[in-house]
């Protein structure tokens, strides 16, 4: 299809991540006999993330943000366009990007420590070194003393901390987070957000964070990229000038916070009108995300 357009393997750039003209099209069928129907999950997405920046992608379900993240991870290929990390084209998954998924995805047969060491094992880091690194990151996410517990012995918030520690442990420069706090209760969520900012400031990673919560986006991000669905398009990038370090207790109550939140909300509301007719097609698109199969 459109993939024949020649994309350069390398580009000159100062940005950490460059998303260049990404389009992603799925072929959908409701029944086995029906001819395939095209569904445009992402259309002409352009985005640059600076080194050390915290960028949040916000949008309703079905705006293609998970697809975009899969493409960034290297698990899915775009129909056209390309993603560059440090100017090099992404061709597949690699350990230069850490990933934190919505459902924790902690291996139930591994202890906290073994989960954190998973990426290091794939990287073939020697055992002694692994142990030092996992100790360090378990400490960073505040789980000292839980290293030998199994996931089923942990609360939701603790599990998510383990998932973050696991993504940080193999020292990727970029952290990709797909609605990581969606499954935890409101209070835990706020403390995890504070924690994440603290970790980000301590490690200086570049973070790309996907969420459908406007509030979470405004609180966390340096910039917020607003995506609207059908087809998934980048509507606007909003710069968040709230002072850092931010804390849930005072940042959220500031007038500026409310103003930005309101602005993003309006951007999402005034999405191009055609979108609403197609909303029923949306969950299907999420379900057939090409990474779901082995």
């Amino acid at each position: 299809m459109a993939g024949v357009v020649d994309v350069p393997q390398q580009i000159q750039t100062d940005a950490k991540i460059v998303v260049k003209a990404i389009t992603s099209v799925f072929h959908l069928k409701k029944t086995r006999t029906e001819p395939a129907r095209e569904f445009i999950a992402l259309k002409e997405i352009n985005l640059e993330v600076k080194k050390g920046e915290f960028l949040v992608l916000v949008g309703p379900s079905g705006c293609g943000k998970s697809t975009l993240l899969d493409i960034l991870t290297g698990l899915a290929q775009p129909t056209s366009g390309a993603v560059y990390i440090d100017g090099n084209k992404v061709t597949g998954p690699a350990l230069d990007r850490g990933i934190v998924l919505q459902g924790y995805a902690l291996f139930p047969w591994r202890t906290v420590r073994q989960n954190v060491e998973f990426g290091l094992e794939i990287k073939k880091v020697p055992k002694r070194e692994r142990r030092a690194i996992s100790d360090n990151f378990i400490h960073l996410v505040g789980l000292d003393g839980f290293a030998d517990r199994f996931p089923h012995e942990l609360s939701g918030g603790m599990k998510q901390r383990v998932a973050i520690a696991r993504a940080l442990a193999y020292d990727p420069e970029v952290l990709l987070m797909d609605e990581p706090f969606a499954a935890v209760d409101a209070q835990t969520r706020e403390s995890l957000q504070d924690e994440l900012l603290r970790i980000w400031e301590a490690t200086g990673k570049t973070i790309l964070f996907v969420t459908h919560s406007i509030e979470e986006a405004v609180f966390l991000g340096d910039r917020v990229a607003v995506l609207t669905p059908n087809p998934g398009t980048l509507r606007e990038i909003v710069k968040i000038d709230l002072p850092r370090p931010r804390h849930n207790s005072d940042t959220r109550s500031s007038a500026e916070f409310g103003w930005i939140r309101r602005k993003i909300w309006e951007l999402l509301q005034n999405a191009p009108h055609e979108s609403r007719h197609h909303l029923n097609a949306v969950p299907v698109a999420e379900a057939i995300s090409p990474t779901a199969s082995l």
């Binding site: 072929h27 069928k29 086995r32 006999t33 395939a36 057939i288 090409p290 199969s293």
Partner: peptide, 14 residues
């Protein structure tokens, strides 16, 4: 997956 588009008709696949 793109191959999904080419599933044979119901009776034949049965």
């Amino acid at each position: 997956m793109p191959t999904r588009a080419f599933v044979s008709p119901w009776s034949l696949s049965r």
